[in-house]
Lab assay of single mutants.
Amino acid sequence: MQRVNMIMAESPGLITICLLGYLLSAECTVFLDHENANKILNRPKRYNSGKLEEFVQGNLERECMEEKCSFEEAREVFENTERTTEFWKQYVDGDQCESNPCLNGGSCKDDINSYECWCPFGFEGKNCELDVTCNIKNGRCEQFCKNSADNKVVCSCTEGYRLAENQKSCEPAVPFPCGRVSVSQTSKLTRAETVFPDVDYVNSTEAETILDNITQSTQSFNDFTRVVGGEDAKPGQFPWQVVLNGKVDAFCGGSIVNEKWIVTAAHCVETGVKITVVAGEHNIEETEHTEQKRNVIRIIPHHNYNAAINKYNHDIALLELDEPLVLNSYVTPICIADKEYTNIFLKFGSGYVSGWGRVFHKGRSALVLQYLRVPLVDRATCLRSTKFTIYNNMFCAGFHEGGRDSCQGDSGGPHVTEVEGTSFLTGIISWGEECAMKGKYGIYTKVSRYVNWIKEKTKLT
């Protein structure tokens, strides 16, 4: 034993070699072989497995989906700052455009905790909710729209109204504003409101030439003092309507412009014939205590009207009353817009006519005020429907199939267009061939041609 100890002390290297040989010859039971080890760690190889990531292109799944990435790591994937920024906006807080917040056709661009709407022409605001041009839906104005110097929408209202708090709607500024039905039992019968379409306001006024200088022999019209197929109006439903009495009662109609003036057809009036105007009328054979009678003290036909040349060209006249009318729910003026808007309103496509005229061709006159909704007829169809001249200051309205029309005794009465609950004068009943005849239409004086003249002559002093 002493000898062994001496050998170990003198030859430590020998001992180490012996131990190493023993270990190498022993069977290893701690580690699995290569094949079995792979069965336990069965993990798919990654895209760049075996390579240094710093030297390969980034992978979106590896960089940002398996674990949260930084902007720089995302930049490695896209290799483009702009594309990385677009991805980053949604990656950080989701897609803010998912709810489609942009209105009126706006395009949404996502941002971090926010979004941006790219608005089409005519709109602005956070969600493109603000109209900035009158060309689109009248700028959301209830009545009139004008573009300011910086191309912003400025709404306005006709006389007797003021802008509401929203700067879009119009509200009454006087007790009985024009064009409004205020009798409670008839307010439910107000005709369907007309909503502004998209309009090209630059070209809204037709490029028409008034044929002022045409000389033409007097034409022989049949029954051209021209509501057939209409309905009984309720008291106060058309408070701007008046009836004219002269040699015979209810020979023509008219509309209240203001307390002192009536507008009617020029062919209705004769110099030297006494005319009485009755406002607030409903049943011409009954006294309903809503009527107001006034005498006409002055007749002003349009300066281009000449019955000797043509009885229905420039067929418009103004009547001055001896005493002002007292405005109330049964006696209310009709609204008159400017030339541009009167023309736009007419193009809405349908209007209402009213009167006490004959209820059928050569038949009896109506006792109760009649009204009828009539569609506008395109000019080409209008011209083809008659052998008589249709001037540019006239328009056609009615039904091709016949059966409904204005008729004798309705002449001078109103053709009105309702705009968001307020009625505007767009025409004056003038003439036609018979009444409600198939293929024939009622012919009306186009008020847009005469609004400046009306307003100039009827100013209240």
Rank of each mutant, 00 (worst) to 15 (best):
K387C: 04
G412Y: 09
N151K: 13
L319F: 04
N147D: 10
G246W: 00
W261G: 00
R162W: 06
E66C: 03
C108A: 00
F221T: 08
R404M: 04
S184P: 12
V296S: 00
I334P: 00
S423T: 11
D200Y: 07
G421V: 03
S365L: 06
E86G: 15
R358E: 12
N42K: 09
T332I: 08
V92D: 09
H302Y: 14
N203L: 08
L244H: 02
G402W: 15
V296Q: 00
I316D: 00
N213E: 09
G355Y: 14
R298I: 00
C119W: 00
G58W: 05
K109N: 08
G253T: 09
T190S: 11
P177N: 01
K457T: 14
G179P: 01
W431A: 06
H282F: 08
N213P: 11
E340F: 14
I309T: 07
C252R: 00
E281F: 10
D410L: 08
N42F: 06
E72K: 12
L376I: 13
T458Y: 00
N304T: 06
P177R: 01
T290Y: 09
L372H: 14
Q237V: 06
L24S: 04
E129C: 02
N5T: 13
E456D: 14
G179M: 00
E66D: 06
V195N: 12
G21N: 07
P301H: 08
V263F: 01
L321I: 07
T29D: 10
Q167K: 05
I428P: 01
K260H: 05
G229K: 10
E270W: 03
G442L: 08
E193W: 12
Q57F: 09
K274W: 00
N59Q: 14
Q96V: 09
E76P: 14
Y115N: 03
G403R: 05
G253Q: 09
I284S: 08
G272Q: 02
T276R: 03
P375R: 13
E434D: 14
G442W: 04
V92N: 07
I17P: 00
A397S: 05
G355C: 08
V374C: 03
G50V: 08
D378N: 11
I112Y: 11
L460Y: 14
R180M: 06
S423H: 12
N258V: 01
F251V: 08
V359S: 15
E82V: 09
E285V: 10
E171Q: 13
G398D: 03
V273R: 02
K39H: 12
Q167S: 12
L20H: 02
G254Y: 00
L325D: 01
H34C: 05
R191F: 10
T287E: 11
C134R: 03
G409M: 11
H282L: 08
A9K: 08
S255D: 00
K168W: 10
G412D: 03
T417Y: 02
V447C: 03
R358P: 10
L460R: 12
V227R: 12
S99N: 15
E231V: 09
L425R: 00
S182C: 03
I262K: 01
A250M: 07
E35I: 07
L318N: 00
E53I: 05
P101G: 03
K45S: 05
N38V: 10
I17G: 00
C141H: 00
E86K: 15
R162G: 05
N48R: 07
A266D: 00
Y305F: 08
Q219G: 10
W356A: 04
G272R: 02
I300F: 05
T264W: 01
E124R: 05
R83E: 06
K457V: 12
S423L: 09
S184F: 12
C108D: 01
A233I: 07
R83P: 13
G246N: 03
R46H: 04
C335N: 01
L211R: 06
Y91W: 04
N147P: 12
T194E: 13
P175D: 06
V359E: 06
G398K: 07
F360M: 13
H314V: 03
L318S: 01
R62T: 13
R298L: 02
K126Q: 13
H303R: 08
A192I: 09
K362D: 14
P12T: 13
I454D: 01
N80A: 07
Q2W: 15
K438R: 15
G412N: 05
C18V: 10
T271I: 09
I297S: 02
F388W: 12
T271A: 04
L163F: 01
T417G: 01
E142N: 05
C435V: 03
H400Q: 12
E129V: 03
G363F: 08
A266P: 01
N104Y: 05
G272H: 03
E323P: 04
E259G: 03
P101F: 04
N304W: 12
E208G: 05
V199Q: 14
K339C: 09
E401L: 13
H34M: 13
R449C: 15
K339V: 07
D131R: 09
C108S: 00
N127D: 07
K146T: 12
E433G: 11
N245H: 09
E159N: 07
K39S: 12
T186R: 10
F31V: 15
N135W: 09
D322N: 03
E456R: 07
P101S: 05
T218I: 08
I443W: 12
T386A: 11
S25W: 14
N283S: 06
N393E: 08
V257G: 01
Q370I: 03
G402K: 14
N100T: 12
E66Y: 04
Q143M: 07
D405A: 05
E165Q: 08
G409P: 12
R226I: 11
L346V: 07
P101R: 05
C69A: 04
N135R: 13
N59K: 10
F399W: 15
N166P: 02
K387A: 11
R75G: 15
E79T: 14
T215A: 08
C119T: 02
H289V: 14
K234Y: 14
A233E: 04
G160H: 04
C128P: 02
E86R: 15
P414T: 10
K51L: 06
A279V: 03
S169Y: 06
L318W: 00
D131G: 13
K168L: 10
V273C: 02
A164V: 05
V195R: 09
G125K: 03
N304I: 03
S49Y: 10
M8V: 08
P197Q: 11
C170I: 01
T85A: 09
M437V: 15
E67I: 06
A397R: 02
E165R: 08
S329C: 04
N283C: 05
E86F: 05
S184L: 13
D93V: 15
V419N: 06
I443P: 02
G413R: 04
L367Q: 13
Y391A: 14
E76C: 04
K51D: 08
L23R: 01
Q143F: 03
K68Y: 08
L425P: 00
Y441E: 00
A265T: 03
F87D: 15
A337P: 03
C117V: 01
R373K: 08
V368W: 04
L32Q: 14
S255G: 04
S187D: 11
G94F: 04
N48G: 05
A397V: 09
I334T: 01
G254A: 04
N328P: 02
N310S: 12
L52M: 14
R294A: 02
K109I: 09
G402E: 15
E171I: 12
L325C: 00
P375E: 05
P324Q: 04
I309N: 15
L346R: 05
P414K: 02
G412C: 07
Q57E: 08
L369P: 15
K446C: 05
F424W: 14
W431L: 08
F55R: 15
V153L: 06
L19A: 05
C155Y: 00
Y305I: 02
C382M: 02
N42Q: 14
V273W: 04
S169K: 08
